[in-house]
Design a protein around this nucleic acid. Structure first.
Lengths: 230, 230
DNA sequence: AATCATATTTTGTGATCGCAGATCGCGAAA
DNA sequence: TTTCGCGATCTGCGATCACAAAATATGATT
């Protein structure tokens, strides 16, 4: 029996991406970047017109966002970016505490030296953004910092749950950055990020998780005290 | 200026439910009840034909299931109930440990006496089902037992995350019940359910969570050792 | 000016159509 | 027997249409 010669071309698949997938990615990005204000109605026809496509792919994308509770249906079925009440925010942050604490703890065992190096660099950028009162940069680096850790937690499932939480909190955080008038550096009076990095470097998952939880908890307290809710 | 008299009828809205919502509910129920075998391809046309509707509402329902990772897309976009590998199962159970442990801990403060009474009744039914080797009943009561607790955790968000996890594990558990040949009572040699009830009655969230985690962990170990994976 | 009734537009929802790529099956050639 | 080619079918995907309910705008009346 002849053994087949090795397939000469090691090309990957072409993999054309359907339009509804592109719409979905664009919407999630816009959502997490806070480009959509809370209470905004997202109608498939308007969006389709704006994107110059039919409304079918838009519907598919919106359905997925609804399933993740990133959008909620009105009585008539219109989908809207839910307004952030105090209760919902507190609930989301409590759940973040649970999931992100666990992810941080698990990540301690998996972070490579390269990860740790990148992490402390982002941590430095984060501190700099806080000192410069650049809240947009701060939020951006905060996201990168935390997700660099969570991606190393070794659990696809847990990472996914955390992403759905951020999809709900993200819009509100960005909206808050607009009404921000306080002192950003004041949030950092305890450098939780530094403690997280240091604990992760020691492979001390428990300490890292504790520091991360403090960071989330303090941020939540600050916003509950200072931000405007609906 | 005439003040409108109070609307005489305090009836709620009729609230006709769209078809895609009905399809979604039917699919989630079928999924969690294990009526769909892993690896099964769900095509919108076939389902639409079976339900005697157009494939549009089916597409909407499938999109939502895809967003929750209850279904995964093949290369061509067909959606299929993902096969359960050892790794995925272990990952899901690890994440269940995190979320359901936390939910149990939070629930301790909110469980009413009626909840506790109902819980110990379900616990008794559970034990009976195990003695009778009735694995379907066992899984049913197991679901009711745990979600009666989780619903009392006070966190809509956390409950939602747990539901998405069960949507992924549910099908596999039911599939396993078919190939089950062991001794069901053997799983219960430590009565974790009883410990959970007792701890909740004492409002001891920490102990209740610990017992619940043991229950999940032991079940996971048993299945990892005995069940067939793909 | 304020309010109510009516007309117009918006919007969700579902059905149908057409296209293109994927999949499957059958038969011929090696 | 296996493998390859090709036609039929399946299926995802997107566009368009139709309909009803809701929202909005308009205009008349008090």
């Amino acid at each position: 029996m002849n053994v087949k010669p090795i397939p000469p071309l090691g090309l990957g698949p072409i993999g054309s991406v359907p339009v509804h997938e592109l719409v979905y990615r664009q919407l999630t990005r816009a959502l997490m970047a806070g480009q959509i204000t809370t209470g905004r109605k997202l109608t498939s026809r308007k969006l389709a017109l704006e994107l110059d496509i039919s409304d079918m792919p838009v519907r598919a994308a919106l359905s997925r966002l609804q399933a993740l509770k990133a959008l909620v249906p009105l009585r008539n079925g219109s989908l809207v970016l839910p307004s952030m009440t105090r209760d919902r925010f507190a609930d989301l942050m409590q759940t973040r505490l649970v999931c992100e604490g666990a992810a941080t703890e698990k990540a301690a065992a998996h972070m490579t030296q390269a990860d740790l190096d990148a992490l402390s660099k982002i941590g430095a950028d984060l501190t700099k953004a806080a000192r410069d009162q650049d809240i947009d940069q701060y939020l951006e680096y905060n996201y990168e910092f935390k997700f660099l850790i969570y991606r190393a937690c070794g659990s696809e499932t847990l990472l996914f749950l955390i992403e759905t939480l951020w999809l709900q909190v993200g819009p509100f955080l960005r909206a808050y950055s607009g009404q921000f008038g306080g002192d950003l550096a004041g949030i950092l009076h305890l450098d939780h990020h530094g403690q997280v990095v240091e604990a992760l470097a020691r492979r001390d998952g428990t300490a890292a998780a504790a520091a991360m939880r403090r960071d989330i908890s303090d941020g939540a307290s600050y916003l509950l005290a200072n931000a405007e809710f609906c």
